[in-house]
């Protein structure tokens, strides 16, 4: 029986590929930053008002930035035939799919999380809320990658640039955004924010267990 690449090998490969296409990879981060600049311009530069809506703004922008990049999780592999090779690998396909989700988070969700304090500062979010914001974005963006992968696998053969993927995925993103923003709002109000964060953790665990299976099944259907 031939050996297949390890989970880590798959992650490393996708991160390397993202690094080689650096322009594409940082585009969502630049988008995240730019759109956060739109808020004071469009709304008001008043720090008081900005700080009230900062948690929601940060989360909506993170969600949009993920949407912008999630399509690519399978699109390149579909175009160049790597996906076919993946599907006939002698192993459970859900494993490399999970690796791709992890890699996507490493190049999108994680940098976004690390960038968030900078933007939170410009939006006058109270510093006491930073730990809650970092944790909620870290967990939440991983969930966004996992659920987004299912949407991406369903639309992989439909050609790129379609509006379909957001249409499928955004309704599924709503619960995690509710808990994500609530975590930060709780922290701003000085409440214990571990409750909503725990809910997010539970949702992430479920998503990491189920989404690779669903995405693998979908890939078999849509790339046939």
């Amino acid at each position: 029986m031939a050996r297949t690449p390890s989970f880590l090998a798959y992650v490393r490969r996708d991160v390397l590929l993202a690094y080689r296409r650096l322009g594409d990879t940082v585009a969502p981060l630049i988008f995240f930053t730019m759109v956060c600049t739109l808020v004071p311009l469009g709304l008001s530069p008043d720090p008081q008002r900005l700080s009230e809506i900062a948690p929601g703004i940060m989360w909506i922008m993170a969600l949009l930035a993920t949407l912008l990049s999630i399509e690519r999780i399978f699109a390149f592999d579909f175009e160049d035939g790597s996906l076919e090779q993946l599907l006939i690998a002698p192993q459970l396909i859900a494993l490399p799919v999970l690796a791709k989700i992890v890699a996507h988070w490493l190049v999108t969700g994680l940098p976004l999380t690390l960038l968030s304090p900078l933007l939170a500062m410009t939006l006058s979010l109270p510093t006491s809320a930073y730990p809650a914001m970092l944790l909620s974005l870290a967990i939440g963006s991983a969930y966004l990658s996992a659920v987004g992968a299912v949407g991406a696998s369903l639309t992989v053969s439909l050609g790129r640039g379609g509006l379909l993927l957001p249409l499928l995925v955004v309704p599924l993103y709503m619960p995690i955004m509710i808990f994500g923003t609530a975590t930060v709002f709780y922290a701003v109000d000085g409440l214990h924010w571990s409750g909503p964060l725990a809910a997010m953790g539970a949702m992430l665990c479920a998503a990491l267990a189920l989404c690779p299976l669903a995405a693998a099944a979908a890939l078999r259907v849509t790339s046939a």
Binding site: A2, L17, R20, E79, D80, G81, E84, I88, A89, P90
Partner: peptide, 16 residues
């Protein structure tokens, strides 16, 4: 699957 090799129209070569 472990005993087969498939090369299709798309060659699975990553240009990057």
């Amino acid at each position: 699957l472990a005993d087969l090799l498939y090369i299709g129209h798309q060659s699975a070569v990553k240009l990057a």
